[in-house]
Design a protein around this nucleic acid. Structure first.
Length: 646
DNA sequence: ATAGGGTTAG
């Protein structure tokens, strides 16, 4: 079973979702779709009189929702007769996007007759840009309030983890609706309090949002069964409910269930939106199932979803994660409306693949086009500097991040910086940086430092890193394994056995390694020293041949990566049995020459496999792309894009 | 307009 996740058994729908029949799905057999917007009377006399205004307002809203402020403003300025709704539509842009509180305030002050909606929208702006305290202040200044105003503030408290105040406010509300209840359910979930979420849920009147919030809650607590039960018990669901299930499956590493549900959903006539595709594509990325990703791309390209920024960004990310940078880039170039996430996806795609210069020039281009980078952008940018070995530039970006862009450094940035210094051999600098961190360093910081110590053969700092890593994350095997490797690299075998003993005593379990590769739309999975794959005899034969050629070319098996106390001959067999090598050999046998092989694995690339793959790429004249837990390695002509540091 | 679903990073 585990060997063949058959992708051909069309997880995707037989017929594409029908966007043409936009309204025809609302009352299908099992699924009723609840709509929030009431259709309203078709022809009121004044509706006819103001037809122009209402049509313009609708169009402005559409532009705003699509993130196209320029077009929205153009139409706004061209509209001679503006209603408060017209103004509100523009203001909604700032509430949605955030980051421009000043502009929002200016616009708000210009509205001739602001109504509750204007105030509520402004309230959201405050909440997004300045936090819940600023929102509370504005809320108290509001002369007219409705349920939405209260809901906004309740949500504000709930989302910032202040459930106590959210509850008080909730109790004090003059009236409540389903929005209030669902916000409370979600708030308890966010606070990690499933019990109270359930209590709140059962006290709430039945509504789609409350049920959806509860489904999400169960999913976040890993209770997939309960979520499923709730979902299938629901008589009336809407698109958000379906999306909550899709996202929940993916979150719980049940990507294939997400894909199955996606198929059901489309067959019932529920049209997926950008969010649905987001989850589906993320699931596909987790499976590294490129062929499925391509199918979804086809589906999207025949639909209006091609205009959806979220859906397209997810496609780009999927191609990056499946190791096909060219296709990601092609999409990126073709995309009409890019947002920050899109830029981040592309920049980090290049950074992860080791194309540092490309990532950096993209970063410049992004700024030139008026986009403000965020913390994720800087993770990618520093990673990119790392790959090109530009330590000074990396430091410069790290510093300018705070001074020029007021982006606070997060744990991830420190990990990147330690990597940057560590790779360049500046281990002291890395230690200095760690010691000066404004918050307690987390495990990856020490793990990265430890890795660098192994490469630069510094056992003293390796001890420091390992001790701290074991303290912060005792279950992490890397704290022992990498320390042992560092000692092995300077031939301190007494210490190597000491560390191994230590590891045994601590009962840390090394995660079993597994690798997989897609051949002919089937994902083939291999474990270390696999015994189950039916093609094993021919794979081992192929590996034997390769081993001879590799040795002739100068390859020496690196026994330090065979962590067993056995003779060299057995060690060599163990190394050849590493799941990565099995997957690569299988890929070589089963694909035609000239085609790149993509292998994915659940652990970091092992040193011996890394060396071996370099030889194999030269011997077989093939490009081999290996994705491990942290980055991509592109092997070609005996070299790797990571420059032998990872 | 307020809620429930979400991409980048990890």
């Amino acid at each position: 079973m585990r060997h063949f996740r058959n992708l051909r058994s069309s997880i995707l729908p037989a017929a594409p979702p029908s966007y043409a029949k936009a309204r025809s799905f609302s009352t299908t057999q099992h699924t009723q779709i609840a709509t929030n917007s009431s259709p309203g009377p078709a022809t009121r006399p004044d509706a006819i009189r103001h037809w122009d205004v209402s049509a313009a307002n609708k169009q402005i809203s559409r532009y705003v929702r699509a993130g196209d402020l320029d077009s929205a403003l153009r139409l706004f300025n061209a509209t001679p007769f503006k209603t408060t709704v017209t103004w509100n539509s523009i203001l909604a842009y700032y509430a949605e996007k955030g980051g421009k509180l000043g502009d929002a305030q200016k616009l708000f002050d210009r509205i001739p007759e602001p109504d509750v909606v204007s105030c509520n929208t402004m309230l959201v702006c405050y909440l997004r840009d300045s936090g819940v305290e600023a929102a509370r202040e504005f809320f108290h200044k509001m002369t007219v309030k409705d349920v939405a105003s209260w809901n906004t503030l309740v949500t504000g408290f709930a989302r910032s983890g202040r459930m106590r105040e959210a509850c008080d406010l909730f109790e004090a509300m003059p009236e409540r609706n389903c929005v209030s209840w669902s916000a409370m359910v979600a708030g308890h979930v966010e606070a990690g309090d499933l019990g109270n979420a359930e209590k709140c849920f059962s006290a709430a009147p039945e509504s789609v949002p409350a049920w959806t919030a509860m489904i999400s809650g169960y999913m976040k607590f890993g209770k997939v069964d309960l979520a499923e039960k709730l979902f299938w018990d629901m008589r009336v669901k809407n698109l958000v409910t379906w999306n909550a299930m899709l996202a929940g499956y993916v979150e719980n590493c049940e990507a294939s269930d997400a894909l199955k549900l996606f198929r059901v959903m489309v067959e019932l006539g529920v049209r997926p939106n950008g969010t649905s595709f987001c989850s589906v594509l993320l699931g596909i990325s987790n499976l590294s199932a490129l062929s499925l990703g391509k199918q979804v791309h086809q589906l999207i390209s025949k639909s209006p979803m091609m205009e959806d920024t979220t859906a397209c960004t997810s496609l780009i990310s999927m191609y990056c994660k499946c190791g096909v940078l060219d296709d990601a880039w092609r999409l990126f170039v073709e995309m009409r409306r890019k947002d920050l996430v899109t830029w981040n996806a592309m920049i980090s795609g290049y950074a992860q693949h080791g194309a540092g210069m490309k990532a950096l020039s993209l970063f410049d281009q992004m700024k030139e086009e008026g986009n403000k980078p965020d913390w994720i952008t800087f993770v990618a940018v520093i990673t990119a500097c790392n790959h090109v070995g530009l330590v000074g530039l990396g430091v410069q970006h790290f510093e300018s991040m705070k001074t020029d862009y007021s982006v606070e450094a997060r744990p991830d940035h420190y990990t990147c910086m330690v990597d940057l210094f560590g790779r360049a051999g500046k281990l002291d600098k890395a230690v200095e940086l760690i010691k000066g961190m404004p918050f307690p360093p987390h495990a990856p910081v020490f793990g990265t430092l430890l890795g660098a110590c192994r490469v630069h053969k510094n056992v003293e700092i390796a001890e420091f890193a390992s001790q701290n890593l074991r303290r912060v994350d005792p279950a992490n095997a890397a704290g022992y394994v990498q320390l042992a490797n560092a000692y092995a690299s300077v031939n301190r075998w007494d210490q190597v056995s000491r560390v191994r003993r230590l590891m045994k005593e601590s009962a840390v379990v090394k995660q079993p390694g597994c690798s997989w590769t897609e051949v002919g739309k089937v994902v083939h999975e291999f474990r270390s020293c696999d015994r189950l794959h039916p093609d094993l005899p021919s794979i081992l034969e192929k590996l034997g041949e390769l081993g001879k050629k590799m040795k002739a070319a100068g390859y020496v098996p690196e026994f330090e990566y065979a962590l067993h106390d056995v003779g060299d001959e057995v060690k060599e067999q163990l190394l050849l049995g590493h799941s990565e090598k099995l997957a690569i050999a299988f890929g070589l046998m089963r694909t035609v020459g000239g085609v790149a092989i993509r292998v994915f694995k659940n652990l970091r690339v092992c040193g011996d496999c890394h060396t071996a793959t370099k030889y194999i790429s030269a011997i077989e004249g093939r490009e081999i792309i290996v994705r491990d837990t942290t980055r991509f390695h592109h092997f070609k002509d005996g070299k790797c894009s990571c420059g032998d540091y990872w």
